[in-house]
Simulated assay, not measured.
Amino acid sequence: MILEIVSPEASLFKGEITSVTLPGVGGSFQILNNHAPIVSLLQKGTVKITAPEFKFSKESAKLFSKVNDQNYTLAISSGTIEMKDNKIIVLAD
């Protein structure tokens, strides 16, 4: 599935992932391949991304923390997420 993370300043990440865990207002939740369509608000917390490989722009790489070769995290203040047809768009502050 494809994940795209966008902030008001720039596109932070776009790529093929295997899972993402997000800080929802009702608690943390994970999205895997073929998840049902969803739109949700996000609260302050950490976005955890698992992917076979990561490619970041030079500017956005400093915002992500490497856990290991296949896992990175991103701290956000708030946001919105939409998942539809194996494409996830996160609008993050």
Rank of each mutant, 00 (worst) to 15 (best):
Tyr72Leu: 06
Thr46Cys: 12
Lys87Pro: 03
Ser28His: 04
Val47Ser: 05
Glu53Asp: 13
Ser19Ala: 08
Val67Ser: 08
Ile2Gly: 09
Gly26Arg: 03
Gln43His: 10
Asp85Phe: 03
Asp85Ser: 15
Ile49Trp: 02
Ser77Trp: 06
Ala36Cys: 14
Asp85Lys: 08
Glu16Met: 13
Asp69Trp: 05
Thr18Lys: 11
Ile76His: 09
Thr46Glu: 11
Val25Glu: 13
Asn71Glu: 15
Ile17Gly: 00
Ile38Glu: 10
Pro23Glu: 04
Lys14Asp: 08
Val6Phe: 09
Val67Asp: 09
Lys58Arg: 06
Asn68Trp: 10
Ile76Lys: 08
Lys58Ser: 13
Ala75Gly: 14
Ser11Ala: 12
Lys44Met: 08
Ser57His: 07
Asn71Cys: 12
Gln70Met: 13
Asp69Ile: 01
Asp93Gln: 07
Gly15Lys: 06
Ala51Met: 01
Val67Tyr: 08
Ser11Leu: 11
Gly79Val: 05
Ala36Ile: 05
Asn68Leu: 02
Asn33Gln: 13
Ala61Thr: 01
Leu3Met: 07
Ala36Leu: 03
Leu42Trp: 10
Gly26Gln: 08
Glu53Gln: 08
Gly45Leu: 06
Asn86Ser: 14
Met83Phe: 12
Asn34Arg: 04
Gln70Tyr: 14
Gly15Ile: 00
Leu22Asp: 03
Ile2Leu: 15
Glu59Thr: 02
Gln43Cys: 10
Met83Gly: 10
Gly27Cys: 01
Asn33Thr: 07
Val6Trp: 07
Gly15His: 05
Thr21Asp: 03
Gln43Ala: 15
Thr18Ser: 15
Val25Ser: 15
Phe13Lys: 02
Leu74Asp: 01
Val6Glu: 14
Met83Ala: 15
Val67Ala: 11
Glu59Ser: 11
Lys58Gln: 09
Ile31Gly: 04
Ser7Glu: 09
Leu32Ser: 11
Ala51Gln: 01
Glu53Arg: 01
Glu53Ala: 06
Pro37Ser: 15
Asp93Ala: 04
Ile38Lys: 06
